Simulated scan of single mutants.
Amino acid sequence: MKPAVCVIVPVYKAVHTLDRCVESVLSQEVSGGLCCILVDDGSPDESGAMCDGWARKDPRVRVIHQEDGGVSSARNAGLELADAEYIVFLDSDDALREGALEAALTAQEEHPDSFVIWNYTTDLLDDAPTEGDVTVRPASALARLYLDCLIAMPWNKLYRGDLLQELRFDEGYTLGEDLQFVLDYIARLNHGETPWSFAVLEAPLTWYNCDTTGTSLSTRYHDDYCDIWPRHFAKLNAACRTVHVPPEDLLPLHRAELTVLAEGAADILRRDPSPAGLRRDKADKALSGVWLRELLKTMRREKNYSAYYLPVWWRNLHLLYSMAEAKRLNKPLYGKMDWLGYYLFLGRRRRE
Rank of each mutant, 00 (worst) to 15 (best):
Leu258Ala: 01
Ala262Trp: 02
Ala84Gln: 02
Gly161Lys: 00
Ala49Phe: 06
Glu102Ala: 13
Arg20Cys: 09
Asp40Ser: 10
Leu205Trp: 06
Thr194Ala: 11
Pro44Asp: 10
Asp83Tyr: 01
Asp284Lys: 12
Trp207Thr: 01
Ile228Arg: 11
Ala139Arg: 07
Pro275Arg: 02
Leu340Asn: 13
Asp83Met: 00
His111Ser: 06
Leu258Asn: 03
Thr212Gly: 09
Leu236Ala: 01
Cys149Gly: 13
Leu346Cys: 09
Asp113Phe: 12
Pro275Gln: 01
Ala152Glu: 14
Met1Val: 15
Thr121Met: 00
Val30Gly: 05
Ala239Pro: 04
Glu110Arg: 07
Arg271Ala: 07
Pro3Asp: 00
Glu352Gln: 11
Leu329Ala: 14
Leu26Thr: 00
Val71Asn: 08
Arg255Gln: 10
Tyr221Thr: 09
Gly132Asp: 00
Arg60Asp: 05
Asp249Leu: 09
Tyr221Phe: 14
Ala139Gln: 09
Ala276Asn: 03
Ala95Gln: 09
Tyr334Arg: 04
Leu333Lys: 12
Arg60Thr: 00
Val25Tyr: 02
Asp123Gln: 12
Tyr86Ile: 03
Lys331Met: 15
Asp170Arg: 12
Tyr225Trp: 04
Gln180Trp: 13
Leu269Thr: 02
Ala266Ile: 06
Leu236Phe: 07
Thr17Met: 12
Asp211Ser: 02
Val116Tyr: 05
Leu183Arg: 01
Ile228Thr: 10
Glu67Phe: 13
Leu344Phe: 04
Trp118Thr: 09
Gln180Gly: 15
Arg220Phe: 11
Val63Tyr: 05
Arg280Met: 05
Asp281Ser: 14
Val88Thr: 03
Leu346Val: 07
Gly172Ser: 09
Arg97Gly: 09
Ala14Lys: 01
Trp314Gly: 10
Leu18Ala: 02
Gly347Phe: 03
Asp94Gly: 06
Gly214Pro: 10
Asp170Phe: 12
Arg220Asp: 11
Tyr185Leu: 08
Glu29Pro: 03
Lys303Leu: 12
Thr215Ala: 13
Val15Tyr: 03
Gly264Met: 01
Leu158Gln: 07
Lys13Asp: 14
Leu164Pro: 01
Tyr305Leu: 05
Tyr146His: 10
Leu79Cys: 05
Ser24Trp: 03
Gly69Ser: 09
Met50His: 08
Val9Met: 04
Glu294Leu: 07
Ser24Ala: 08
Tyr120His: 11
Glu257Ile: 12
Ala77Gln: 07
Lys331Glu: 15
Gly277Trp: 04
Pro275Cys: 07
Leu287Met: 05
Glu193Gly: 11
Ala326Cys: 07
Lys336Ala: 15
Ala107Pro: 03
Gly176Tyr: 02
Thr194Asn: 14
Tyr120Glu: 12
Tyr343Leu: 15
Leu320Gly: 02
Gly172Met: 12
Asp272Gly: 10
Tyr12Thr: 07
Gly53Pro: 05
His232Thr: 10
Leu179Glu: 06
Leu269Lys: 01
Ala74Glu: 05
